[in-house]
Each structure stands twice: as C-alpha cells, then as structure tokens.
Design a protein around this nucleic acid. Structure first.
Lengths: 337, 337
DNA sequence: TTGTATGCGTTATCAA
DNA sequence: TTGATAACGCATACAA
C-alpha cells in the first residue's frame, strides 16, 4: 500500500505539501505540484479512505436510501439510482446503498457513525417515515421527491403541477374541450406523492380552461394492458380526442395501438401528450409530445444541494422544483367540431 | 457525537473493555458487559466509521459492481442487488455501489484506498474485463456468475448445466421424444454466460435421452411477445408437446396463453418446465414446474465466501455451483403417441 | 477479567 | 510557498 509519506519522499517534499497539492486546498507552486502528481501517479497512490474520514471532515460517501417495495417500477427506479451514482461520482462521492426495511435504522446508523457526508432519499412516500429521521439527524439529507409534510426538509423534484398545466394548455390551445388523463396505477396514488401533484395540475388547469376531464388509473398494482385498452375505448366513445398520459412505457404502447386499431392518427385525428415520462418516448412507435421527467436532472440537483449543505451548513432547507419542458413531436391535433 | 470514551466513563470501565465488549473479541464478564451495552445504547453510541477503518483491519463495506447495460433486465437485476444488500447487512456489511461505466477504475480505486473489505461482481459477462482486475487487486473479489475464463477467481452461481439436465430428464421420463427450449433474448447469449450453460445442459442431456430438441430465442434485445407466440405455434405444428422455458415472466405468460388458445391444457396435453427462473412462478396463471434460480441463495453464498476470504486470506479460489432443485406443480403431462 | 499505551494515515493548525 | 506536528477515535498488543 502506498502512503502519503512515500509520495512525499519521492517528490522530495513534506507530507502536508502532498496533501495540499492533491486536494488543492492550498496554493502549491506549479513545479512541485507536478512533481507530486507524477510521483502519486507512478506509485499508484490513493489516499487511505479510513484515515481521510478520521482526519478530515468528509467521508466522500453519500448514502442512498431506497425502500424497494413490491410495486416499485424497476426500470424507473434503476434509472434514478444510476443517475444519482453518476452525479455523485462526478463530484467525487461514492454511493452507499441503504435498502430494504432497515432504511430507518440505516439512516441513523450511517449518521451516528459518520459513515457518510449526506443522505439522499429516493422513492419518497407521502407519509414517509424518513422525513422524521431527516429532521433529527445531523447529516444533511436531500429528498428526491416530496413528502406531504416537507417542513424543514430539502427536496428536489420536477414541478409536476406545472407539468400538468403545460399539458392541458397545449390541448386546450388546440381547441379540445374534452380530454382523458391516463394515469398511473392505483397503488401509486396512495404510495407516492407526485402522481397526485400532476393530477391536481391537470385538474386545476382543465377547470380554468373549460376542458372536461376524465381520469382513469391503468391497473391496480401493476400495469394492466386490458384496462388501458378499455379505458381508451371508453374515452373515444365519450368523444374524447385528447389524451394526457402519465404512466410507464407499456401504457403508451397500448394506447397507441388501440388508437391505431380504431383508425385514428395521432397528431391528425387525436392528440396525445406524455407527461412526466421518465423513459425514452422517442422509442415509441409514433412520435409523441413529451414533458420529460429526466432523472439525471433531479439527481444532479440533489447531489448539488447536498454538497452545498456541506460547504455551508447554514444553508436553509428548500424545495427545489424543476420547471417542466415541453418537447413537441407533432402529436397535437386541432380539435374538430 | 458519542465516542468510546464517553461510553467507557458512563460504564466505569476503560475504553478497551468497551471495544472488546462490543466486538466480542475478548471475554467480558456478564455484569460489565451489560453495563457497557446499556451505556452504549442509552448514549446512542455507534463506532466512528473512519476510526474503525483506520485502526482495525476492516471497513465493514463491500463494493458491488454492476455495469448497468441497456439490455439489463431491471427486475431481475434489482432482485440481485437487494439480495446482496440484505445478505451483507445481516453480517454487518454495507454495500457501496460501483456503477458508472468505469467500474474497472472503480474497482482499482476502492481497492487502493482500502474503502472496502471485498468486491462483489454482478452481471458477469463471458469476457468480463473485471476478471483481469480481480486477479491483480489485493481486495478479495467474488463473482456472482461465471466468466469464460474463471481461472484464479472465486465464483458463485446456480449449476445451470445440471438444471438443464434436470429439466430434460423430467420431460424424457414422461415419455416425450421431442421438446422445445424457449430461451432468452439473442443478446443475452452473447452478453452472458449462464444462458449458454443452461442451453448446453439441455442439449447434452437431450442427446443422451434421445429427445429431439428445438431451440428458439425470444426476442433480439428485449422480449418480443409476437416472437414467443409464433415460436410456440411452430413448435406445436412440429408436434412438440414439451416446453422448457428459460426466460423472463412475460415469456411464460405468452406461452401459457398461446397453449390455452389452442385448447391445450398444461399438465394434461402438454408439458411445461421453467428452468432457472429468477421470478416468482407461482404468480403465473397456471402452475408450472420450476427449477428456481434464487438470488438470495447465490448472494448469500457470495457474501459468505467474501467473509471467509477475509477471515482466512489463504482460502483458495473456487467455483461454487449451487445444485438445482426441482419444484413440481403438476405441469408435466405424459406423452401421447 | 480488565487496563495502558501505541499506531493506523490523513487533514489542518500553527510556524516559518 | 512550504514544513512540522497535533489531533481524529478506535483496535489491539502488551501488561497486570
């Protein structure tokens, strides 16, 4: 194992100069810094994690809590985990997994043992028990998602309400007086907070714009293609020619197939908007206007907020809402009377 | 922050006694041990992670490398991650995620910095670059899966060949002379090793038992229901009445629906065996004989092997094959001539 | 059965 | 711009 002493010897300087040269926390002459960096590289020096944690103020590790429930949508979840890991790594942090039932104990444990610099919370529930823990723990905690009572918490999330407004506006602008919201599974409206926020945004703006809105869920616990198909057909029978979809990719596919089976062309006979989609909608059979939910965005901001709290512990808690973007793909059709 | 000194004071002993009492590495009288445990609990003492890493020999962290590819089957992958985390935690280890594309650099980094006690490798490819790194690194490494050249590596996996034998035997015992293997996606036969091992087991034993075997993949990159249906119908047209399925849950469902649509009853007119299924086959519409691939099993063994290497660094590399089990559910039908 | 004392490899403070 | 050195909190070898 290479230590800082060996690097110091090789470069002909003291260990403190090595430390400062590598951390950049103190100006070091260009010349000696290069000698040090060369020595470190050729010796394969990597600071001892334990020593660094003990002496320094940082562990360079973030905890990521994720209470993998049975109804968790695996692909979406994985996208968030990956995005978090990448964003953290880019800033020099590793991710420690706090999974399963023990997330509550886990949070206390990693905080008390000073194993991590901050805690990132994924898959936030409306009445999330981790909210209370976050308030008692000294370790800075950032929620990716928003619980019902976010008081005193730092949270990041897409502005789902604004996304709902945006979707309805485009449809109303095209002249539609009726629309259907193909929502998530039933359980997600109980287990999560964001589907309700999008729903509220869609409902409120529909009221304002005089759009008659129908809302349907797309399965009990997991997506049910048959339910999606019959819901679509019912909507068509009602005369709805505008669909806002807030659901996984499969739902989009069933919707598009059903519309096609009825001879309706997206963007000409019928309007479709995908709201807060966390998957790649460009892979769908038909181009669909999308208000994307980009995990990379939320996770990047979360890591950023966490680090800001470390640099300046006085930073007040805040809710960071990411403004939605509208990506047109020609799937809005003018309403026909 | 509570330190070991405060616990020692509260219990009226020296810090070394506290350390030994809590680690159990030295006998401590029942009386004082209880006093110490009480003090530790009431003070909320948790050993400082950095200090423990520096002074002791262990970090109590395992790295888990997972090169999340686009074709990764998210639910299966999550099951393995979760199982690993649970098994590790049960033995007092946390899981550090090594996920970016640069898992190779990550392995070297956590090894050089002594951040982790061991490395667990998930989603092993035939020509996995991590094999070479594992051989050079000091940190004990355990593969959950087997690369093409496992020389000098410690690996754990289900005995896929034996699973293939088992499946064919049951079908041959029932008198079938023809069978179809519904396999994985095409890409997985290139990207992974285990589908080929199962295939070989099925082929070899089919030859031995005089079973005429057909093998089909079930999609290019991801599962294609249409391909599964047409493959099933082609098999039926050939006269095959026995199916071995090595694929995700969706494939099973399409198969069962197709059989049903042809008026064939599983267990009476046609035989179905699910081989190396990592999901819960009891949730299928029809009970199906299953040779399960239980992530908990592999991951438990992996963690066990990792810890054994820590306790006894001399432990030689080994490939640990988990013998398959056959769970009957009445889906084997006697062959009709 | 318990206590004392050393060292782990850094970071950061104080000096120069 | 650089160096010496005192923590950091614990595990463990050595003593008692």
């Amino acid at each position: 194992m290479t230590t800082i002493h060996e690097v110091a010897d090789a470069a002909g300087v003291s260990i403190s100069t090595v430390s400062y040269a590598l951390s950049g926390k103190r100006p070091v002459s260009e010349n000696t810094r290069r000698r040090i960096e060369d020595a470190a590289r050729s010796l394969g020096y990597e600071p001892d994690a334990g020593a660094r944690m003990l002496a320094g103020r940082r562990t360079h590790i973030f905890a990521l809590t994720e209470p993998l429930r049975a109804d968790t949508h695996a692909p979406t979840h994985m996208a968030f985990v990956l995005a978090t890991a990448v964003a953290a790594r880019r800033r020099g942090y590793d991710i420690l997994l706090l999974t399963d039932e023990q997330t509550a104990d886990g949070m206390n444990r990693v905080a008390a043992s000073r194993l991590v610099d901050a805690i990132l919370v994924l898959d936030v529930a409306p009445d999330d028990e981790r909210a209370a823990i976050a308030r008692t723990v000294r370790t800075p905690t950032v929620f990716i998602g928003i619980p019902d009572d976010p008081d005193g918490l730092t949270c990041v999330d897409l502005d789902f309400e604004a996304a709902g407004h945006l979707a309805v506006d485009r449809i109303a602008d095209a002249g539609h007086r009726r629309a259907t919201l193909l929502g998530q599974t039933e359980v997600s409206y109980r287990r999560s907070n964001f589907p309700r926020r999008l729903l509220r945004g869609v409902q409120d703006r529909s009221d304002e714009r005089g759009v008659s809105l129908s809302w349907v869920t797309t399965g009990a616990v997991s997506t049910d293609p048959a339910a999606v198909r019959s819901a679509t057909e019912a909507a068509l029978a009602r005369g709805d020619r505008a669909f806002i979809v807030h659901a996984v990719g499969d739902v989009h596919e069933v919707l598009l197939r059903t519309l096609d089976a009825h001879g309706l062309r997206v963007g000409e006979d019928v309007s479709v908007v995908s709201a807060a989609a966390s998957f790649d909608t460009s892979a769908l059979a038909v181009p669909v206007d999308t208000i994307p939910l980009i995990p990379q965005q939320s996770c990047e901001v979360a890591v950023e907020l966490a680090e800001r709290h470390l640099d300046d512990p006085g930073t007040p808690p805040q809710i960071h809402l990411i403004p939605p973007e509208y990506h047109s793909a020609g799937s809005i059709a003018p309403a026909r009377e």
